[in-house]
Nucleic acid binder design. Structure first.
Length: 534
RNA sequence: GCGCCUGUAGCUCAGUCGGAUAGAGCAUCGGAUUUCUAAUCCGAGGGUCGGGGGUUCGAAUCCCUCUAGGCGCGCCA
């Protein structure tokens, strides 16, 4: 007998039942996961919304619906609370029917994206030095976001844009020359806006030692820095589908200029883009008085190319110093003939690093910064990612490196990973005792409070994924993982998995496996490893 | 001066985009292990959601205003 495939999202299943009694469900309708179990498991705000439309009391509507919805066997209880909430408690049989889907490797995958092509561009650091911690944050976030979008069926692509031309690159080269002169005992002065980091001194040494011909210095410099950045990215565990170079778009700048023509004017020898027509605070130079194109010209060419490649949504993750850049980009994109709303800019706010409560001021150009490499070496890529992803991107983030190390024992990443490792150990023990997994364990015996609570957390996973993806907010997964781990640890303390009772053992092993799969799926979206043992 | 972000427990932060008695971790205090990993569990205390006004059935959330902090404001990126 075939039945239509049931939706794995609890919220959708409940909504479907409400739909049988309410013809038009307002878009603001929400099924929320209730944290406090005394109210139930999920709640609906439908009565409030209908009250406004029908001009009736919310409690009356809620009570009517309650009577109608109570008859469905998926609920063990439906109640009305507050001024008109409808609260649902899920029936045990229903929980069991849902958990039986949770040992699938793809559990939690829901369709939101419909294979829409979406491009996520992040980090895109200038190839002028080592990656820093803000870029680490953008990196951890972008990587997790791409994974999350793919999980909900977007055709998501990650891209890193390398600004390998322009004034900054020349400045970098001049700074290198100064360092080389330094070694050759010639007069040397790093330009005022140049790069003072010691890595350039080290590179200068390398160039001299390897007797690199002078006409290759600039290329050697750039390629070395780019290679090092990529190396750091790999060590941090980030994956990019494409690395795109700004130089690729030089030919296309002309076409951008052509399109922008009616929104440009000459002043003081420069060519200006009338971005104030698009809510920018001032107009912007696109060709300088000495004939150089500014950054935005290439960037517009690049974004034009993104749209040409068929992406319908572009997400850019920028540092806080770029917020003033958004208006002109949106303006430019509009003039190019695309919908500026299709470019979504997420600002990854600043990261303030402290060491022993003292702020570390970071400026790449001044050469004072803690690199991503250094932080990673101190606290490890997993803990660093987890930490950076815990905060929503708009939140300014501060953490003390000394503290992060000192409290690493209580670090939430270990708490979650420990749950995974614990389960692994249990399963290993079961295998050693030749307890074969039952394909159809009798799950009805999972009736204790901690078991029920754990099941509820597990089957909520698809809803959590959907909500996180919808708002581009991977940080919800962190809080979910901590809750899930809490539910598991509580279960572990309360009941024994491997006992003399075969039925009980198999049912509990099954629950462990489901928990483990969910932890694994969530961690892998975040880019954090799931260790077999700790 | 203009723009962006932030202000929630002692500390670091969530709060499913307007919903119920505002939550978690850390820290503090008090308990738990002869059994599958104590990197664990159970419990307690701790709040004028920066202040004020407005919108409505209902506001930490939306609007206005004040205030505090951070960042940005280049013919750099």
């Amino acid at each position: 007998m075939t039945r239509p495939k049931r939706d794995i999202m609890i919220s959708r299943q409940i909504t479907d039942l409400i739909k049988e009694h309410v013809a038009d469900i307002p878009v603001q309708h929400e099924i929320s996961f209730i944290q406090d179990p005394k109210f139930g498991d999920y709640s609906s705000n439908i009565a409030f919304l209908l009250a406004k439309i029908e001009n009736r009391a919310a409690t009356d509507i809620a009570n009517e619906l309650k009577d109608k919805l109570s008859k469905y066997p998926i609920f063990s209880n439906v109640s009305v609370a507050g001024r008109g909430f409808i609260n649902f408690t899920l029936a045990r049989d229903f929980l069991i029917s849902q958990i039986s889907a949770a040992d699938q490797n793809d559990f939690g995958k829901v369709n939101i994206g419909n294979q829409e092509k979406i491009l996520v561009e992040y980090i895109s650091a200038n190839p002028t030095g080592p990656l820093n911690v803000v870029q680490a944050r953008a990196g951890a976030f972008g990587n997790a976001l791409v994974n999350l979008l793919r999980y909900v069926n977007y055709d998501a692509v990650s891209e890193y844009y390398i600004n390998n031309t322009g004034t900054q690159i020349e400045m970098l080269y001049e700074s290198l020359l100064a360092r080389i002169n330094e070694f050759n005992d010639k007069p040397s002065l790093i330009p005022e806006n140049g790069y003072h980091g010691l890595y350039l001194k080290e590179l200068a040494r390398q160039i001299l030692d390897n007797k690199i011909p002078q006409d290759q210095w600039q290329n050697y410099l750039l390629e070395t820095i780019i290679a090092r950045q990529k190396d750091t990215i790999n060590k941090f565990g980030l994956h990019f589908d494409n690395f795109v170079r700004e130089s690729t778009f030089i030919p296309r700048r002309e076409q951008v200029l052509e399109k922008l023509k009616s929104y440009t004017y000459r002043k003081d020898g420069a060519l200006w883009f009338k971005s104030t027509d698009f809510k920018d605070s001032e107009d912007r130079v696109i060709i300088t008085a000495n004939g150089r194109p500014t950054y935005i010209l290439s960037d517009l060419a690049y974004h034009w190319d993104k749209f040409d490649r068929g992406f319908t949504t572009l997400i850019n993750i920028w540092g806080p110093d770029h917020h003033g850049y958004i208006a002109r980009m949106h303006g430019g994109i509009k003039v190019l003939g695309f919908n500026p709303e299709r470019l979504i800019v997420i600002i990854a706010q600043q990261v303030t690093l402290l060491r022993n409560k003292e702020k570390i001021v970071m400026s790449k150009r001044a050469g004072e910064f803690i690199t991503l490499e250094e932080v990673m070496n101190e606290i490890g890529p997993d803990a660093l990612k987890f930490f950076l992803l815990m905060r929503r991107p708009s939140q300014h983030l501060e953490f003390d490196l000394a503290l992060a190390q000192k409290t690493s024992q209580e670090n939430p990443v270990y708490y979650v990973q420990y749950a995974y490792a614990r389960i692994n150990s249990i399963i290993k023990n079961a295998l050693e005792k030749n307890l074969s997994e039952s394909t159809k364990p009798d799950l009805t015996i999972l009736e204790s409070d901690t078991e029920q609570a754990l099941i509820k957390m597990i089957i909520h996973f698809p809803d959590l994924i959907a909500a996180s993806a919808k708002h581009f907010e991977p940080h919800h997964l962190i809080y979910y993982l901590i809750q899930l781990a809490t539910a598991f640890h509580a279960f572990y303390e309360k009941v024994r998995v491997i006992t003399d009772d075969a039925t009980e053992t198999q049912a509990r092993l099954y629950l462990c496996q489901c928990t483990q799969k969910v932890i694994q799926n969530a961690l892998s979206i975040l880019g954090v490893s799931a260790p077999e043992k700790m």
